[in-house]
Simulated scan of single mutants.
Amino acid sequence: MSSAMRLQAAALCLLFSISAVNASETMTQDANAHQVRQAFTNWQQGKGTVFDLLAPDAVWTVAGSSPVSVVYNSKTDLMERAVKPISARLASPISPTVQSIIAEDDVVVVLWNGKATALDQKPYNNTYLWHMTFKDGRVTEVTAFLDTYVLDDLLRRVKPVRQ
């Protein structure tokens, strides 16, 4: 086989291997985005939440410098110190409405609005952007951006009835 033919064969092999890797990455991106979309649909229907996607050792960071801007070092930590205290102040569960979901590599970013009624009958409305990193089909890291003033106001204003 001539040098030119060997070079062409090598180039074709490289091209096919790059195409296979790109196809695999695209399939993973699509699968991760689908999981997030389905988790939000389930949440809207009262059949679970996005928190169901979290790995047990997931790290969740609420961005910012407010009193509610905290790093939670596990799913249990997040549920106990954030989700339960918030839920204990609400008369109705947060109803999510997804605005957009974008996936790239192992990251899914979702922009969504949440609405609920607090125990004092005032609305709790917030907008969230969650930057979620996946590994092996589970969310291992989240950075949550939201109006922390609105959340802090809820936590200060409303006394919890259950936790």
Rank of each mutant, 00 (worst) to 15 (best):
S2E: 09
S2P: 12
M5V: 11
R6A: 09
A11S: 12
A11M: 09
L12S: 04
L14I: 06
L14G: 11
F16A: 15
I18A: 13
I18V: 13
S24Y: 05
S24D: 12
Q29M: 12
D30M: 09
A33V: 05
Q35M: 12
R37Q: 13
Q38D: 13
Q38M: 10
Q38P: 02
N42Q: 12
W43D: 14
Q45T: 04
G46Q: 06
K47C: 04
K47D: 06
V50N: 03
F51T: 15
L54A: 06
A55F: 01
A58N: 09
V59S: 09
V59D: 03
S65L: 09
P67S: 10
V70R: 15
V71F: 01
V71H: 07
N73Q: 12
E80I: 01
A82L: 09
V83D: 11
K84Y: 01
A88R: 01
A88K: 07
A88Q: 08
A91V: 03
S95A: 10
Q99N: 10
I101F: 02
I102K: 08
I102Q: 08
A103E: 05
D106R: 11
N113D: 15
K115Q: 12
K115M: 06
L119S: 08
D120L: 07
Q121G: 00
Q121H: 09
Q121K: 14
W130I: 04
H131Y: 09
F134I: 08
K135S: 14
D136V: 03
V139L: 10
V142F: 00
F145G: 14
L146Q: 14
Y149M: 15
V150N: 12
D152P: 04
L154I: 04
R157T: 03
P160F: 01
P160K: 06
V161I: 13
Q163S: 10
